[in-house]
């Protein structure tokens, strides 16, 4: 496709179009933190695909739980998997307890940041103390140390760089070209996930797609950590982080998160949950969530 300099590239695509560019065996980074601002509509699209054998890098929440439950994860690079208000992620726990993740790779939180930062800078590694002396060194025998070449001579952990084949992040706002904005309290490490990713499959979903000239209407320039050179595809995904937080647009859907956890306890309940919410497309998911909420409300009303 030749570019038309008079017309900026419009990067708007759908979740399914983004996922269609992925292949089995790829390394995927997922932004957000725990059960906070996760690119859930992209994850849900990935669940509907045939893609498998993924290496997943994440400050894990329900994204990791769902991908584990669907058997899509070959290698998981993580420091924790948590739903925040509910500390333990049920699907991740089951996957670990049944040893169904072939290559669990458990690192310190700071090591994940360092690996992505090194990847983004195209460095082979970055040194740190985080991990030394801990069980991380015991369960990751391939990790190596490096000696400071200066007078101190300190032995440090060399965190190997991670380069991603694909990255998913969810933002509050984006223009059609991928200038994206977070309006909540923390960007987490979303900019690093995009920067550590090979160009081609860097995807940003956003609550609202807005004109470029509106980017400073709701937040200061400090909120523009993600620019279009870091992004290949933009997905309009209202409520796309559901059921995780997307402050200030919406908070966590705690009652839905609880229903998710309750369903995960029992294979039959999980099948029913999965059939209802995850078998259809994103529009079906969102409408089922609305219906579910009405049912809960009605049931509460009837109980009174």
């Amino acid at each position: 496709m030749t570019s038309d300099i008079s017309k900026p590239r419009n990067k708007i695509i759908t979740e399914d179009q983004a996922v269609a560019t992925l292949r089995s065996g790829m390394t995927l980074g997922i932004g957000g933190w725990g059960s906070r601002r996760k690119p859930m509509s992209l994850v849900r699209s990935l669940l509907r695909s045939d893609i498998t054998d993924l290496t997943v890098v994440s400050y894990g929440g329900p994204d990791v739980g769902l991908l584990c439950a669907a058997g899509k994860v070959k290698k998981l690079i993580y420091a924790f998997v948590s739903l925040d208000s509910i500390p333990l992620e049920p699907h991740f726990r089951l996957a670990r307890q049944n040893a169904t993740i072939p290559e669990p790779t458990e690192w310190d939180e700071g090591m994940l940041q360092w690996a992505l930062f090194a990847g983004s800078l195209r460095l082979p590694f970055l040194p740190t103390r985080a991990g030394l002396g801990s069980g991380v060194m015991d369960v990751n025998p391939s990790l190596k140390t490096v000696k400071s070449p200066y007078a101190d001579g300190e032995e440090l952990l060399a965190v190997p760089a991670i380069r991603l084949d694909a990255a998913f992040v969810h933002m509050n706002r984006s223009d059609t070209r991928g200038n994206a904005q977070y309006l909540g309290p923390d960007v987490y490490f979303d900019d690093l996930f995009l920067a550590a990713c090979e160009p081609g499959r860097r995807f940003v979903s956003a609550e609202k797609i807005i004109p470029t000239e509106d980017l400073l209407k709701e937040g200061t320039f400090h909120t523009l950590k993600i620019n279009r050179s870091m992004v290949d595809g933009v997905i309009h995904a209202p409520n796309g982080a559901h059921f995780t937080t997307c402050e200030p647009d919406y908070g966590r859907d705690e009652s839905f998160q609880k229903a998710y956890v309750d369903a995960a306890r029992d294979p039959e309940a999980w099948k029913a949950f999965s059939d209802r919410f995850l078998s259809g497309d994103e529009a079906n998911y969102q409408s089922q969530v609305v219906t579910w909420r009405e049912e809960i409300k009605a049931a509460k009303g009837a109980a009174k």
């Binding site: 670990r96 458990e106 310190d108 939180e109 740190t128 103390r129 985080a130 801990s134």
Partner: peptide, 21 residues
């Protein structure tokens, strides 16, 4: 055992970095 835990909890989180820093 870490390879197949009886009970998976949070993961190491920031514990390794916290305690050496």
């Amino acid at each position: 055992p870490w390879a197949k835990p009886k009970s998976q909890l949070l993961g190491v989180r920031g514990g390794p970095g916290n305690t050496v820093n």
